[in-house]
Computed example of a mutant assay.
Amino acid sequence: MITLNDFAGAWRLSRHIEDALAGGTARLEGYCRFTPQDDGLLCTESGTLILPGREGGFTAERRYFWRSDPDGIAVFFDDGRFFHRFDPNAASPAADHDCAPDAYAVRYDFSGWPLWSAQWRVKGPRKDYVSVSQFSRRRRSPEADDRPCRD
């Protein structure tokens, strides 16, 4: 059984974003760290985002707050607004988030735990993409918890 606390620590993050409108694939390579805070985990994703047709990449970072809840795990944006809820132990963990005029649908896969993934399908008047993120445990060293989540 996977619980919120099982996510604590550092994870390697690899994301591919297939953008149907832009006609290309963006990539993000970096880390995701779940840090205990208050009554949950602060999730910080950071890495280098490489956009199609552009030289080099740039640093991207995003934060969420994950909290245990009777139905599994509730995810909030870093400003406290509710994002979505999922059950990591469901046969096919999934959730939806409507942000008019856009619709977001996520499908998680924990079947290879501690390897896991999140696939987002985003559709709206100016958005049409699929983002697939792969997470794997970061190799641990004695000072791993003190280092920032960057190479």
Rank of each mutant, 00 (worst) to 15 (best):
M1L: 09
I2A: 07
I2F: 02
L4F: 08
N5P: 01
D6G: 04
F7S: 01
G9R: 12
G9W: 11
G9P: 05
W11G: 13
R12Y: 12
L13M: 13
L13T: 09
S14G: 12
H16K: 15
I17Y: 00
E18G: 01
D19K: 08
D19Q: 07
A20C: 04
A20L: 10
A20P: 02
A22K: 13
G23E: 06
G24M: 14
G24D: 14
G24Q: 13
L28M: 15
E29L: 11
G30R: 02
G30E: 05
R33H: 13
F34D: 01
P36E: 10
Q37W: 05
Q37C: 06
D38K: 09
D39H: 12
G40K: 03
L41T: 01
L42V: 07
L42A: 10
C43T: 05
T44N: 13
T44A: 13
S46P: 03
G47D: 07
T48P: 06
T48L: 12
I50D: 09
I50N: 11
G53R: 11
E55L: 14
E55F: 15
E55K: 13
F58Q: 08
T59P: 05
T59Q: 12
R63A: 15
R63K: 15
Y64T: 00
Y64L: 06
D69H: 11
G72R: 02
I73A: 03
A74C: 07
V75G: 00
V75I: 12
F76Y: 15
F77T: 00
D78W: 08
D78S: 14
G80T: 05
R81F: 13
F82H: 15
F82A: 13
F83P: 00
F83I: 01
H84Q: 04
R85N: 09
N89F: 04
A90R: 01
A91Q: 09
S92I: 10
P93D: 04
P93I: 02
P93L: 02
A94H: 11
D96F: 10
D98R: 14
C99T: 09
C99M: 11
P101M: 03
P101Q: 05
A103D: 08
R107K: 07
Y108Q: 02
Y108T: 00
D109S: 02
F110T: 00
F110H: 06
S111D: 03
G112S: 14
G112C: 13
W113P: 09
L115F: 15
S117P: 00
S117Y: 01
A118F: 08
Q119L: 05
W120C: 02
W120H: 04
V122M: 07
V122Q: 06
V122D: 07
V122L: 08
G124S: 06
P125S: 05
K127A: 02
K127E: 04
D128N: 14
D128I: 00
Y129S: 00
V130G: 07
V130P: 03
V130Q: 13
S131M: 04
S131E: 06
V132D: 02
V132H: 11
S133P: 02
R137Q: 14
R138N: 08
R138M: 11
R138K: 12
R139A: 11
R140N: 10
S141T: 12
S141R: 11
P142D: 09
E143Q: 10
A144V: 08
A144D: 13
A144S: 15
A144N: 10
D145F: 00
D146T: 11
R147Q: 12
P148Q: 10
C149M: 08
C149P: 04
R150C: 10
